[in-house]
Simulated assay, not measured.
Amino acid sequence: MSTDGQPHILAIGGGTLVPDDRYGMSPSPLMRYALDLTGQDRPRICFLTTALGDGNEYIARFYAAFSRLDAEVSHLALFPMPNVADVRSHLLAQDLIYVSGGSVANLLALWRLHGVDEVMREAWHEGVVLSGQSAGALCWHVGGNTDSYGPQLRPLTDGLGFLPYSCGVHYDSDTQRRPLLQQLVGEGTLPGGYAADERVGLHYVGTEFVQAVSYGDGAHAYRIEPDGSGAAKETVIDPRRLASL
């Protein structure tokens, strides 16, 4: 759990893992930043791949990548049944919970079916750092847009709502993302919010956005707000640059 006792969320637009010639994939500076938020020398990390259907290949990939960290790593799977005897106790015992990308619509449905949504809220209030990429970033917000239903993006308006904002992910790599999010915010389907390019994380303390962090050049975060005329205005946020590995 975070040593400052505050509830932290790091919502990552993309780039949690980076290619590694020796190990396949390694944690990026964004993942290490999330780890630092716990304030623990050897934090307990639990990752969830619900949005990927808990496929064995994905679980193995995350174990291989996170094994590079000085951390105690576990996972929570919901297919074909929860892999831990007490989901609540397991999640509340963590310092950091990381949620993978994939289908945010399926993730939300399964979490609500198993009561994981309420446990996540409790963990957040107890100071467990929450993080995730793509679907794992969108889920904490009111909504955004998603390819959960097919290649043509559609609105997502039933996120967990821990954060009272809309969220945009993969903002510079998927050409559908920016115009649809601006449309949804402008017309009032979604509240104003924040968006992140690849290699950018949005850091919230409680429900307050405090900063964007990034690695690499040319990546930004954005504040998207309705302009009162049915459209949206976008303000660029320069992220804090993290040290490379």
Rank of each mutant, 00 (worst) to 15 (best):
G101Y: 05
D117P: 09
K233D: 11
V119F: 01
N145F: 01
P191W: 08
A243W: 01
R240C: 01
A93K: 10
Y165W: 05
P179Y: 08
G218I: 05
S173L: 12
H125A: 10
D197Y: 13
A109L: 11
Y194M: 02
L153G: 06
L181D: 05
S67E: 15
F162L: 15
G188N: 08
V84Q: 06
L10G: 05
P191R: 10
N56D: 13
D238Q: 11
G102E: 09
I45D: 06
L138P: 01
A77L: 05
T3G: 00
W111V: 04
S131M: 06
L52R: 15
D174E: 08
D158W: 02
D227L: 14
V169M: 09
D70K: 12
G150M: 05
Y171S: 04
P80K: 03
K233G: 14
A212T: 02
S148G: 06
Q133M: 14
E126T: 11
H90R: 12
L181N: 14
E122A: 15
L245K: 10
V142Q: 04
R223V: 13
R88I: 11
P43E: 10
L78Q: 07
R154Y: 02
I237L: 14
G144F: 03
A123P: 02
L184H: 07
Q133E: 13
M31W: 06
W124A: 00
H170A: 05
A212F: 01
A212G: 13
G13Y: 04
T38N: 07
T16F: 07
L190R: 09
R22K: 11
G159D: 04
L190Y: 12
H125N: 09
L181A: 08
T175V: 14
A135T: 03
S131L: 04
A60L: 09
R223A: 13
S100A: 15
A109T: 13
R42I: 10
P43W: 06
Y194Q: 02
L92K: 08
T207A: 15
V213E: 02
G39M: 08
T157M: 08
L163K: 00
S134K: 08
G186T: 06
F66M: 08
I45H: 11
Q94A: 09
D95M: 04
P239I: 05
S100D: 13
E72Q: 15
I97Y: 00
E122H: 08
Q211K: 15
L69E: 12
Q183C: 03
D172Q: 07
A11S: 11
D21F: 03
S100Q: 09
G193F: 01
R178L: 08
F47V: 07
G24C: 10
A11Y: 01
G201P: 07
